[in-house]
């Protein structure tokens, strides 16, 4: 019997077919995620070893009812994937993986928390916020969900008003650290919602559970009281003189205020002579 060349053996051909199938899969995958004409397709090693998470529905359908197990399986995959490092510097499947895990296990608190901490740093800011909102829907009793979402709004979005709203929501939950309310007030102040911030600080000052929170709140209440006093004086100055004061000292010399106490937050008050807007700056920074 004559021997056939080794490359014509069925095993060898099957191997080639499998490799081809894998190449086609990678190709399809790249097209699926980078079909936009402006997107640049960069292929790193990680793209070939990255996880291929199924859709949550498919995962559920094939889980034999073990959805929590499947969630854990993909949770371990996330740890391997993220812990392994990505040569391309991108974790393309990270948001998809967190979505899958939290769909399979809607009450997996640690998955939401980890996702909210990791995703923004990898460029998935909106996905992180969506994860946080999903966590709030599914775990309405957990303060960590709005708290961590608030952090994303602050750090990645610089949206202080939204961060304040999240911290305020977190503060209403059982078990939330007392300081959460303080954070809400600080962010409202940063977002120029000073009246809201004032009320929040006042409540913390009166009801705060920790000495630190009460002391800190007292300083903010005092600071905002000075702010409101200057705001009121500036308004009276404008209505009587017809222009805004050049600075806070002019309010003092024209006797619109008796004194300007130093801010307990070590901030100096500045008045815009054109608009009359009062802003604060760190003492010594300008």
């Amino acid at each position: 019997m004559s021997s056939r060349p080794f490359f014509r053996s069925p095993g060898y051909l099957a191997l080639i077919a499998l490799v081809l199938a894998y190449v086609v899969q990678i190709n399809l995958d790249a097209q699926r995620f980078y079909s936009s004409s402006t997107a640049k397709v960069e292929v790193s090693l990680n793209y070939f070893i990255e996880p291929q998470p199924p859709s949550p529905t498919n995962a559920r359908l094939t889980s034999f009812g073990a959805t929590e197990f499947m969630a854990d399986w993909y949770w371990l995959k996330i740890i391997q994937y993220y812990g392994g490092g990505d040569p391309g510097g991108q974790y393309r499947k990270l948001a998809e993986m967190f979505h899958l895990v939290t769909e399979l296990s809607p009450r997996f608190t640690a998955a939401y928390q980890t996702g909210l901490l990791i995703l923004p740093g990898e460029g998935f800011v909106d996905e992180a916020i969506a994860l946080g909102k999903k966590g709030q829907d599914r775990l309405p009793e957990r303060w960590e969900m709005p708290y961590y979402t608030g952090l994303v709004y602050h750090i990645s979005k610089k949206d202080y008003a939204a961060a304040a709203a999240e911290f305020e929501r977190a503060a209403t939950k059982q078990g939330a650290p007392a300081i959460t309310k303080l954070f809400a007030a600080i962010y409202y102040k940063e977002a120029n919602s000073r009246q809201t911030a004032y009320q929040l600080f006042k409540t913390i000052y009166e009801t705060g559970e920790t000495e630190f929170a009460r002391e800190r709140a007292a300083k903010y209440v005092e600071h905002l009281n000075i702010y409101f006093m200057l705001e009121d004086a500036t308004r009276r100055f404008y209505s009587e003189i017809g222009r805004y004061p050049k600075n806070a000292d002019e309010l003092l010399s024209a006797r619109y205020v008796e004194s300007i106490p130093p801010s307990p937050l070590n901030q100096t008050f500045l008045i815009d002579p054109v608009t009359g807007t009062i802003s604060e700056t760190k003492t010594g920074s300008s």
Binding site: F64, A66, E68, F69, A71, D72, W75, L76, I79, A110, T114
Partner: peptide, 27 residues
């Protein structure tokens, strides 16, 4: 073993993996 590499989710992973292993072998 799986629980030990789960970032603090040992109890959860041990229970889920253990019960699923039981189901698979029972099937």
């Amino acid at each position: 073993l799986a629980g030990s590499v789960s970032l603090g989710q040992e109890t959860r992973v041990i229970q889920n993996f253990g019960l699923t292993a039981m189901l698979v072998f029972l099937l």
